[in-house]
């Protein structure tokens, strides 16, 4: 087990390096000069050369990459071209907001998904199962940015029950646990939870139906075990597979929130990324993507390790 965990962590290092390389390459993939946003029209060639040298763009690419990587490892992602503030000062508060949103969506989505999945897995083939399956396919197919607009029309415009956009009065950046803050969270979190709820419901249903078909279930019934004790066995056997799907969904929420954050003007990483794209603020763009991707890698690593710990049948060494 320990050997597996160490190996899995070691395996993450080249992946993380690759991810950083892709993030670095993104800037050089961009058409035009990445500095065109700050160099004024008709600047003299000397000025241009000076600015290029100041940002290190005059050196060969591998040197640039290594220098950049060295700074990134120390937590220095450079300065935003727009605000001149360090990129980290922009990304970290946004990341906190995205995590609040993702956590709320996970709570909604996982609870709904598990409930639907268990009910439908127990009643596999019955009309209730068909109905639940239809609902979960809807969850998977629905364009969530559109669902966000529909919820906004119903609850904010027509019923006037919940605020439509933002994260608090006057777009304040602090998030508390009172109703003042929570009411802003409900619609975006609900919107974001639909896809994981659908995917988890489908996978829980499949896994539970599969476990219930196995021979040992008959043994449990034959020896007269009550239903709730059998349920414990079902959960134990279904858990590893379901955990893996959940972890992947949690990780996908980090990136998937971009569209929902834009719809609800939620000041998270997606919102930041969107602004960075349209102001061509490449350092912020690069920093946000790198931080999110590293988070994603980390969650996947955790999921793998937890899954191995939970399921003694997996012997990975």
């Amino acid at each position: 087990m320990l050997v597996y965990v160490l190996r899995r962590i070691l395996y993450t290092v080249p992946i993380a390096m690759g991810v950083s390389l892709v993030c670095f390459a993104l800037i050089h993939l961009a058409p035009g000069d990445p500095l065109s946003a700050i160099i004024p029209e008709g600047a003299s060639p000397e000025t241009v050369a000076q600015v290029r040298a100041a940002y290190g763009f005059d050196q060969p690419l591998p040197v640039q990459y290594l220098k950049w990587l060295q700074h990134v490892v120390m937590g220095d992602f450079g300065n935003s071209i727009m605000t001149q503030r360090p990129v980290m000062h922009e990304v970290l508060p946004a990341l906190a907001n995205t995590l609040v949103l993702a956590a709320a969506a996970v709570l909604f989505g996982f609870a709904l998904g598990c409930l639907f999945g268990v009910v439908s897995g127990y009643l596999a083939g019955k009309p209730t199962d068909k109905a639940v399956t239809a609902v979960s396919i809807t969850g998977v197919s629905i364009p969530h940015y559109w669902l966000g607009m529909v919820l906004m029309v119903i609850f904010a415009v027509e019923l006037n029950l919940l605020p439509a956009t933002g994260m608090g009065e006057g777009g304040s950046g602090t998030f508390g646990l009172g109703w003042d803050s929570l009411q802003y969270l409900i619609l975006p979190a609900l919107t974001l939870s639909v896809i994981p709820a659908g995917i988890i419901a489908r996978s829980v249903r499949g896994t539970i139906a599969e476990v219930r078909k196995q021979d040992f279930m008959q043994t449990l019934h034959a020896k007269g075990l009550p239903g709730r004790r059998i349920f414990v066995h079902v959960v134990k056997n279904a858990l590893p597979a379901v955990l893996a799907v959940m972890g992947l969904q949690l990780a996908q929420l980090l990136g998937g929130s971009i569209l929902v954050e834009t719809v609800f003007s939620w000041p998270g990483t997606g919102f930041l990324l969107n602004n960075a794209i349209f102001t061509r603020d490449l350092p912020v763009l690069q920093g946000t993507i790198l931080v999110l991707a590293m988070f994603f890698v980390l969650i996947n690593l955790t999921v793998d390790v937890v899954q191995t710990a939970v399921d003694p049948r997996i012997k990975r060494a």
Partner: peptide, 22 residues
Amino acid sequence: RVIDVFYAFPSVLLAVAISGVL
């Protein structure tokens, strides 16, 4: 391994990042 690196990005994020840059 190259595939793994691209797999290490959330899919929506990768799509938005590449489209955003290009």
